[in-house]
């Protein structure tokens, strides 16, 4: 779950989803959750029959042969590297924002990002147990804060609550808006597929 980084995904992903899909943008997240659940079920079935660290690369290979497996491995490698590049960039970027906001220090994110990445790599090299424990701790903290802030906002705005964000008629440009917001909503869940690997 730490791989998904719910707070990070929501902090940096939701604004663009809302701009793309409009007031009912939460529906794109619901649609993405359904799609992820269906795909998750499929991968879980594969994983039960063929447990593998390779996940869907192995499943594609076993089903369609070596060429498909190599193609999947290359596409997955490129896709994951691009996705993680965003996380790597935002790690230094957000620290830069925090330092600027609270201490008025102007340290460029281009300096902070490589430093944080190097520290993370050092931890990963030390072994998966240490890094996983720390990632789990971070996850517990972020979930607590997400829930507390969400509940506080709902209480504060209790008198103005409406179901408009959940009405399909409020999606910008109908299906076009839903289609444009859908891949962004899927992006919020990246990391979920780790649960299907063994």
């Amino acid at each position: 779950m730490a791989n998904i980084g719910p707070a990070m995904s929501f902090f940096f992903g939701f604004g663009l989803i809302a701009t793309t899909a409009g007031l009912a943008s939460p529906l794109t997240i619901v649609a993405a959750a359904v799609a992820i659940a269906l795909l998750g079920n499929t991968l879980a079935q594969f994983s039960r029959v063929q447990p593998s660290t390779g996940g869907f690369i192995t499943f594609v290979g076993k089903t369609f042969g070596g060429t498909s497996a190599v193609a999947t491995a290359l596409i997955a490698a490129i896709g994951y590297i691009v996705a993680m590049a965003a996380v790597i960039a935002i790690s230094g970027g957000f620290l830069s924002i925090i330092l600027n906001h609270y201490l008025h220090w102007n340290i460029p994110w281009g300096i902070l990002t490589p430093i944080l990445t190097a520290l993370a790599v050092l931890m990963m090299i030390r072994g998966i147990a240490v890094s996983t424990k720390l990632a789990g701790l971070f996850f517990g903290f972020e979930m607590t804060v997400l829930i507390v802030v969400s509940v506080a906002v709902l209480i504060k705005n209790g008198g103005h609550l409406s179901l408009a964000p959940l009405e399909p008629s409020h999606i910008s440009h109908g299906l076009t808006g839903l289609a444009a917001g859908f891949p962004l909503a899927i992006y919020l869940f990246i990391g979920w597929e780790k649960r299907t690997r063994r």
């Binding site: 791989n3 990070m8 972020e142 780790k194």
Partner: peptide, 21 residues
């Protein structure tokens, strides 16, 4: 929370995806 989430995703993500490769 945003910062720890980003670091958690960085560590867990690179750990996981690098293992895939």
């Amino acid at each position: 929370a945003g910062f720890t989430s980003t670091l958690g995703a960085l560590i867990a993500g690179v750990n996981s995806q690098a293992r895939l490769q």
